[in-house]
Design a protein around this nucleic acid. Structure first.
Length: 928
RNA sequence: GCGGAUGUGGCGUAAUUGGUAGCCGCGCUAGACUUAGGAUCUAGUGCCUUACGGCGUGGGGGUUCGAGUCCCUUCAUCCGCACCA
């Protein structure tokens, strides 16, 4: 009986399901481990062969941990709200809930066929009201809390109100955007509406006018991480800057903690670096410049207060509201013109064009507080409203952008820093600025002669003493825009009374998504929810019309898996105390600045509330690499329907054309299939190679429908089986690297499984396994493999374990070994990789229970002890021959013997050995 | 421009972390068996050379008895970020 993978895999998948083999429960008697995959968005295209890569790796690790005696939580679910389903709904009228459900069913079928050990009873879907109840709940908590900068934690807004009532807001330590200060008395005299407005400036979820990324094509605002190179991440539509009233999350309050937390988690350095850059901490000072003939102050942020003496002009962002106030009448028109021009430019244009210098003098002058000089104030695109204060002091001598600007507008350049051991030079001769991170101050009053670091410190002391400004840490991380003018997302649990937002009561959750007639904005431009009938509270107050963004549902899902059907809490204390947080998280690096920042923020907030017990959600994170497509190409001779084989293609003038990889095997094209593929190829003619075959060329690129290089795991499972697919995906190369998928290589892995099978069964299906005691050589093979595989799994080097298994089976085959004492542990060892075949064998050799209940084989060093070692003998570093010496022979003795050795003498060509290096059990090197 | 990663046979890759470069597999070559198959088995396969031997881990330089691995420099590819003050 040959290895019948189809029958075997179906049987055991059914057995696992029928017997609830992968069900997980709290079990305080066992150590626990939580392995999580980034859950997928169920797209209409289904899974391709690249998607399961991480799932297979995490499944192997889960099964391994289970064999090692851990209680392993390994769940799966769906990130099922999102734009594609809604775009599809707009086109077809099909409700996104229906498409989503169909897509999920398809995903589930595909996943089931690969033999994962998920506990499906814990499945979650972010679009399920029972789930998004907790997303809404968390939002309400964000609404009801503010960030206390003294305790560095979220605190109830009620506490803030108490402080306001007691002493106003002057001494309050809170992250806020409140423009005004007030006393306790003033607070109490404010109306309810006024008080609510002020509180919005403190809440962690707040509604405010802010400059947002508006995507007209999608009809919604987007968060910073959803905009890539000035276009929307989904769909690539243009994005413009617009001021709108939007919900935001005050993630900026957590910037420092998000940065600090990175030190304590086991993520790749590159991923942490991306997050550090995204958070963008910079130390410096905020300074106020007086404006000539005006009561306004121009506030700027700088990391280099030491260069204040070199400031020769000021630049404000065109969007800066202060511009209008300080511009004298005769400049109003020019300024206004520049502002409208820059508004017309999309974000993308502004980014693409960083070379051209543009700007406009406002006619106003600031006073340099250091030397009293009057300096002109400009507006320019190169200063961003979104960073710092939207205004800068320009130091052209030491900043390349300021320098270009100064040259363009003929503004003075004053050098205030010289490189160590250098002297000041004539700045009019400079072709670029001197961006001096270190050096010595000149022309700078009382900090002259100090080095940059000291000068910065001294200047900050001075400006604080003078009341000009203060030391400040600035972050690039912006608050996250939290509303989307879309249908297929979580409704925000907010209603409006007199135009002010109020939270729903928690017992009114979930606020379910209403039915609408069309998934489009209303005629007057309201979001799709504006179409819903009676979208208001029972009292008639209208609900918020926006829904939540994609990252909302994925921000706390890791906790819901711990206690997925709890109707009372997001997660029970008991379940959370047991599982704590995710031990191992697997997914793509594309979530570095989105999901992985938001969920860390969300987690820290829940931690502050005492809802969860860990401050970081994902202890260890691994990014799997992308699986690329390997496209096949045929070469059509220009102006003809003749195709020439790859080998001869250079002799002709050809056009390469992508062909479906499913018609190609080992780069050889199936000509009949090709002719049948498209009508225009029906009468195609071919120039074949010397073997009478048509050989295709290939190209590695993204796996995508348009390149006809998509490989569906279902096809692989059908042809080779899930165990082969699992092992081949691992065999392809290191988990974290991108690599092309080439179905051809899969034979080797499939052959391996058949060889493994044949260690147990003869051709007629009789069990060959016998009970005699194993030889030393057999035990050595087994234990070598146990050691290697164990170490590899711990380091996530699954590709090398597959090799180790192949070597092991090859060697046992050579020894004709069918001994149970060898094969049974080997089966357990292999079962995380190839669970179906191992489960089958496990039962065939007489075990009534599933192999997942077995224990991981123990490695014993004693079987690997060698009593001799074959030394490679090198001469001047070149290996020439090998020689056996007892393993415990001393270096001195080896040296003596090797110098007397005939072969060695031959290589010495009669010359004396100048030096002999002997590294025990490694190498002998003779220098002459 | 800044930051990160990666460069090893025709291809995917391996190398106990400074100690035999090319393990395992694909592909290829030759052969065996055969109920002719996209099955199985055997042998070979980094490059150059008839051979002796030489050359080889993107290039150049260095440290070392010894470098794919460490240092300097340079090139190429990929991925982030990008007027961040």
């Amino acid at each position: 009986m040959e290895y019948n993978f189809q029958e075997i895999e179906q049987r055991w998948q059914k057995y696992w399901q029928d017997n609830n083999i992968y069900k997980v429960e709290l079990n305080p008697t066992k150590p626990n481990f939580y392995v999580l995959d980034m859950f997928p968005y169920p797209s209409g295209a289904g899974l391709h062969v690249g998607h399961p890569l991480g799932y297979i790796a995490s499944d192997i690790f889960s099964r391994y941990k289970r064999l090692k005696g851990f209680n392993v939580l390994h769940p799966m679910g769906y990130d099922s709200f999102g734009l594609p389903a809604e775009q599809y709904a707009i086109q077809t009228g099909q409700h996104p809930a229906i498409t989503t459900r169909q897509n999920i069913e398809r995903y589930r079928e595909q996943l089931d066929r690969i033999g994962f050990s998920y506990d499906w009873e814990r499945e979650i879907r972010t679009s399920d009201p029972a789930y998004y109840k907790w997303t809404q709940w968390a939002f309400l908590q964000l609404f009801k809390h503010y960030y206390d900068t003294k305790t560095q934690s979220a605190q109830p807004v009620s506490k803030l109100v108490q402080q306001f009532e007691h002493s106003g807001n002057v001494d309050v330590s809170a992250a806020h955007s409140c423009p005004e200060t007030f006393t306790a008395l003033e607070w109490k005299q404010k109306s309810e509406a006024e008080q609510q407005k002020i509180l919005l400036n403190y809440r962690l979820a707040y509604l405010a006018d802010s400059l947002v990324n508006w995507c007209p094509a999608l009809g919604t605002v987007l968060a910073n991480d959803e905009v890539v190179n000035g276009v929307s991440e989904r769909g690539g539509h243009p994005v413009i800057q617009k001021e709108m009233k939007q919900w935001s999350l005050r993630i900026s309050a957590y910037a420092q903690r998000l940065l600090d937390g990175l030190e304590r988690i086991d993520w790749t350095e590159s991923l942490k670096e991306i997050q550090r850059n995204w958070i963008g901490r910079s130390e410096g000072a905020e300074m106020n410049f007086k404006i000539k003939n005006s009561s306004h102050l121009l506030e700027i942020f700088t990391t280099r207060p030491d260069t204040s003496w070199g400031v020769t002009f000021m630049v404000m962002a065109p969007e800066n509201k202060l511009v209008a106030e300080i511009t004298p009448p005769d400049y109003q028109e020019a300024v206004h013109h520049y502002i409208t021009e820059s508004q017309k430019r999309s974000e993308r244009e502004r980014m693409a064009d960083t070379k051209t210098v543009s700007g406009q003098f406002t006619g106003a002058y600031a006073i340099n507080p250091m030397n009293g000089n009057e300096i002109p104030i400009y507006i320019s695109d190169y200063v961003l409203m979104g960073y710092g204060t939207g205004a800068i002091m320009a130091v052209p001598a030491h900043d390349s952008r300021d320098f270009r600007f100064a040259r363009h507008f003929n503004l003075p350049v004053i050098q205030v820093v010289v490189a160590p051991d250098a002297v000041a030079s004539d700045t009019s001769q400079w072709t670029d600025s001197f961006d001096a991170k270190e050096g010595v101050m000149i022309h700078s009053g009382f900090i002259d002669g100090l080095d940059v670091k000291k000068a910065i410190r001294k200047t900050i002391e001075y400006i604080e003493y003078q009341g000009i400004g203060k030391g400040k840490i600035n972050f690039r991380l912006r608050d996250a825009i939290f509303s989307r003018q879309r249908y297929w997302g979580e409704p925000l649990p907010i209603y409006f009374k007199d135009g002010l937002p109020y939270p729903l009561n928690e017992d009114q959750l979930p606020l379910e998504l209403p039915e609408v007639d069309k998934f489009l904005p209303t005629e007057d431009g309201q979001p799709p929810l504006g179409r819903a009938e009676s979208w208001s509270t029972p009292e008639g107050y209208p609900y918020e019309l926006s829904t939540m963004p994609g990252f909302a549902g994925s921000s706390a899902y890791m906790y819901r898996y711990m206690d997925p059907s709890n109707p009372m809490e997001l997660v029970s204390k008991e379940a959370n105390q047991y599982w704590k947080n995710v031990d191992l998280y697997l997914g793509g690096a594309e979530h570095a600045t989105g999901h992985l920042i938001y969920s860390r923020f969300w987690n820290k907030f829940l931690f502050d509330l005492g809802v969860v017990c860990e401050d970081e959600p994902f202890k260890k994170l691994i990014n799997q690499g992308m699986i690329q497509g390997r496209s096949s190409l045929v070469y059509r001779i220009q102006q003809s329907n003749t195709f020439v084989s790859f080998e001869k293609s250079s002799q002709y003038d050809t056009t390469p054309i992508h062909v479906d990889v499913n018609m190609v095997e080992n780069d050889v094209l199936d000509l009949e299939a090709f002719k049948a593929w498209r009508p225009e190829f029906a009468d195609a003619e071919f120039i074949l190679n010397d073997h009478d075959q048509y050989k295709c060329g290939y190209q590695v690129e993204k796996m995508s429908k348009r390149y006809y290089n998509v490989v569906n795991p279902d096809d692989i499972v059908l042809k080779y089986g899930a165990d082969t697919l699992r092992m081949y995906e691992m065999f392809l190369g290191p988990l974290d690297q991108s690599k092309p998928w080439d179905t051809n290589g899969i034979d080797g892995v499939h052959k391996f499984l058949r060889k493994f099978w044949r260690l147990f069964f003869d051709r007629d299906g009789n069990l060959l396994v016998e009970l005699s005691n194993p030889e030393a050589a057999e035990l050595k093979i087994l234990h070598k493999t146990i050691k290697k595989v164990n170490e590899d799994i711990e380091r996530f080097n699954f590709n090398t374990s597959v090799s180790a298994f192949m070597i092991c089976v090859n060697e046992l085959n050579e020894l004709n070994c069918h001994k149970r004492q060898i094969l049974e542990p080997l089966t357990i060892l292999l079962s995380p990789f190839a669970p179906h075949i191992c489960e089958e064998i496990w039962h065939q050799i007489g075990h009534p229970d599933s192999i997942v209940t077995a224990g991981f084989p123990e490695f014993d060093e004693k079987y690997l002890v060698e009593n001799s070692f074959e030394y490679p003998v090198s001469f001047n570093g070149k290996m020439r021959f090998k020689i056996n010496f007892p393993a415990d022979l001393s270096s001195e003795e080896i040296e003596k013997q090797i110098l007397a050795n005939e072969t060695a003498l031959k290589w010495l060509e009669g010359k004396p050995a100048r030096k002999v290096v002997v590294v025990p059990k490694r190498i002998i090197n003779i220098v002459f």
